[in-house]
Amino acid sequence: MIIDHPMLGPRDASEFTYLGDASLIDRPDWQADDAAEAFYEYGYLRDNPAGEHQELWYHEAGDRSWLVVTRNTLTHEISKVELARDVARARGRSK
């Protein structure tokens, strides 16, 4: 596979390490009342879609960027690649 890195252009997927669903960005609030349940769902439950999947790849043998790649799990077609940091900020994460 080839991942079109937003800053470095197309790179072979073997330069990257895969983590999983980009929902891992959405780490729950540790002080919320339902934190235990929220962390359980965050840590263990997955949509696991057969189709478009937003997922985290790490450019381990490259610039060490974490990327959010939108990829179809049925065809492996990649439709979008973003810096995970930008996605995280867009989802309201900060410090």
Partner: peptide, 18 residues
């Protein structure tokens, strides 16, 4: 491998990735 798809029909999310 289709666990997520079939159980998804029941609205269940699983601790599983395919």
């Amino acid at each position: 491998g289709s666990s997520g798809r079939v159980m998804g029909m029941a609205g269940l999310r699983l601790p599983i990735e395919s």
